[in-house]
């Protein structure tokens, strides 16, 4: 019990405080502040946005088309003089516009492949974790088995058998990149399923599939979104490897991996064909890695 005087004094101090200083900070804002202090990650975000915008907008600004063959400018080295700033290949196609168009494909595959793989991973992990018991152990056994498979080879086999359509590239990549997500999601689901709101849902008779997909999954999305930023560079890399081997998207369409694959064997004459796509690919991969690390550090208080 406070004396009347003391109460007055307390009320006075609280009222005297400027309002801003007692504003609460959400964990989200906390994490964003931590992320903003990570210089490498912030720089990576800026660079990645620049690369993305360049790949989306760039091809309309460059006065060449990605499949135009310019017979007057074959194997031209990079030059400021003309309009082929990144040089041309042996068919006279502009490397700048091909790099940007290739970037569209690589980034799009990175995005769609990640979405597909995360969706699969969430569904698999949430169902396994929630149902538990035999179902869980069988489903996670399948994940273990798939880890043991040399997946690049299966991807090669799938591309061989089913053709090289754009959407097939994405499916092939997604089929093998959801395993990590499934494990993280299962772990999270195990902790979520004993929480009160799930119990409440059980009690009012919500069917299992609705508990999983409208009660469990929305609660997983935050943590999963962060962990899956790590999936993006992996997906881009897999697409690049397939394209590099000549098993990705088909000519004249191209991607960074395909452009790098083209340049091998012509490096003594046209090293710029290797240089520019490699720069874009490596910059994108390292940006994605730094952003993923930065997000994980910012949102995962355990590791601080």
């Amino acid at each position: 019990m406070f004396s009347k005087r003391k109460q007055l004094a307390l009320a006075g101090t609280v009222a005297d405080l400027p309002l801003e200083s007692v504003k609460g900070r959400s964990p989200w804002r906390d994490a964003m502040n931590r992320f903003a202090r990570n210089k490498a990650a912030v720089f990576s975000v800026v660079l990645l946005v620049l690369i993305t915008v360049a790949c989306i907008v760039g091809p309309w600004l460059v006065p060449h088309s990605f499949d135009d063959t310019d017979w007057g400018a074959i194997s031209l080295p990079p030059t400021w003089a003309g309009t082929h700033w990144f040089g041309t290949d042996e068919l006279g196609r502009d490397i700048l516009v091909r790099t940007l168009i290739g970037g569209r494909i690589s980034l799009l595959v990175g995005l769609l492949g990640t979405i597909a793989s995360v969706a699969l991973g969430i569904a698999w992990g949430a169902v396994a974790g929630f149902l538990g018991g035999k179902t869980d152990s069988v489903m996670m056994r399948i994940v273990d088995m798939m880890y043991a498979v040399p997946y690049l080879l299966i991807a090669i086999l799938m591309m061989t058998l089913f053709g090289r359509e754009f959407y097939l590239v994405i499916i092939t990549i997604a089929v093998f990149s959801w395993l990590d997500t499934a494990r993280v999601v299962r772990g999270q689901t195990l902790t979520l399923k004993s929480r009160e709101f799930v119990e409440a849902a059980h009690a009012i008779g919500v069917p299992t599939h609705r508990i999983i997909f409208s009660h469990i999954v929305p609660n997983l999305l935050g943590i999963v979104a962060i962990y899956t930023t790590v999936t993006v560079p992996g997906v881009i890399l897999t697409e690049s490897v397939l394209s590099f081997l000549g098993l990705g998207v088909q000519e004249p369409m191209t991607s960074w991996g395909a452009l790098i694959g083209d340049s091998v064997g012509k490096m003594d004459q046209q090293p710029w064909m290797l240089l520019f796509p490699s720069l874009f690919l490596c910059a994108t991969l390292s940006c994605a890695n730094y952003i993923g690390d930065g997000l994980r550090d910012a949102f995962d208080p355990k590791d601080r």
Partner: peptide, 22 residues
């Protein structure tokens, strides 16, 4: 370690060829 993460082998390989063979 960072190089291994960001420069894939199919970029590093051609770069090695460019330097040591060309």
């Amino acid at each position: 370690g960072n190089i291994g993460n960001t420069i894939p082998s199919f970029v590093m390989g051609p770069v090695l060829i460019l330097i040591f063979a060309i």
